[in-house]
Design a protein around this nucleic acid. Structure first.
Length: 267
DNA sequence: TCCTATGTTGTATG
DNA sequence: ACATACAACATAGG
């Protein structure tokens, strides 16, 4: 489920616990989602008694800062979620991390276990956080940087290139399709074949889709409007909201991709 | 039973 | 060394 805006939405779900101490950290015995740097013993020891100070989201990741120089990183993978549960919450089958506070439990759930938990200590944010590529809505995300990246990945389909987090942090399968649909670029086009106007459109729509997704999904998890590709892409018999033409679905770059033949020309 | 799923990563191949 | 393609990870639901 989670791309840029869904991650931001889930990050805020733990806000009720900000300023509050963790009484106890409960970890799933299987420990499948914990990175080597985040050994269960270290997390239990460092988070017990620590106060949740603040949090941030970037790309598809979140970081939670705790007193005592603790930095907790969470990646939601394909099916991860954060939630707040009552203080007596009994961890469920897929609850990997439960931070019990006096008045609530902060819970990380992920049935499919593609998510990951990291943990570091130190006075400043760890490298796995500071090394995330500059946000698409930051000034560093320029049309020139997009052009240079497309040139280096010239032979790959542009759909696959949009999924590369090193240049398009936070973009996932549905956002990539939404961006290409708005920019009127066929997902199978070779990245190196885009002309200057297409690259500008791609850059512009990356920013537009990120901004609008954060304003809707990122705030309330509300579905984007029917004028987007999003609500039509998985519908049987779904039609392009701009042209009325039936949408097409096919695997491109290893992922199911949806586009509108009405506005995205075959390469 | 078989297929799909809003993600990443390791490995093989060019 | 670099770019690209693809299987693998684990689970639930249609």
């Amino acid at each position: 489920m989670p791309e840029l805006a869904e991650v931001e939405f889930f990050r805020k779900r733990w806000n009720p616990g900000a300023g509050q101490a963790v009484v106890r950290a409960l970890l799933h015995p299987h420990a499948g989602v914990f990175k080597e740097s985040a050994t269960p013993a270290l997390i239990r020891e460092r988070l017990a008694g620590a106060v949740l100070l603040s949090s941030e989201a970037a790309a598809k990741q979140m970081i939670f800062r705790f007193s005592g120089d603790g930095w907790l990183g969470i990646h939601l993978g394909m099916t991860g979620e954060l939630s707040v549960q009552p203080p007596n919450h009994a961890p469920g089958k897929h609850d990997h991390l439960v931070l019990a506070q006096r008045d609530r439990c902060l819970v990380f759930t992920d049935p499919r276990m593609f998510g990951r938990v990291q943990f570091s200590t130190g006075a400043s944010a760890p490298a796995w956080w500071t090394g995330i590529a500059p946000a698409i809505l930051s000034p560093a995300f320029t049309a020139e940087s997009v052009a240079a990246f497309l040139k280096r990945r010239a032979r790959a389909p542009v759909k696959a290139v949009l999924l590369m987090q090193e240049r398009f942090p936070g973009i996932g399968n549905w956002m990539a399709d939404e961006i290409l649909w708005r920019a009127a670029i066929h997902p199978r086009r070779a990245a190196g074949s885009l002309d200057a106007a297409e690259i500008r459109a791609l850059h512009r729509e990356c920013r537009h889709v990120c901004r609008r997704a954060l304003a809707t999904i990122g705030e309330t998890f509300a579905d984007p409007p029917r004028s987007w590709l999003f609500p039509h892409r998985w519908e049987d018999g779904g039609r392009c909201p701009k042209t009325g033409v039936p949408l097409v679905r096919e695997e491109i770059g290893g992922r199911t991709t949806c586009w509108s033949p009405g506005r995205q020309r075959e390469p």
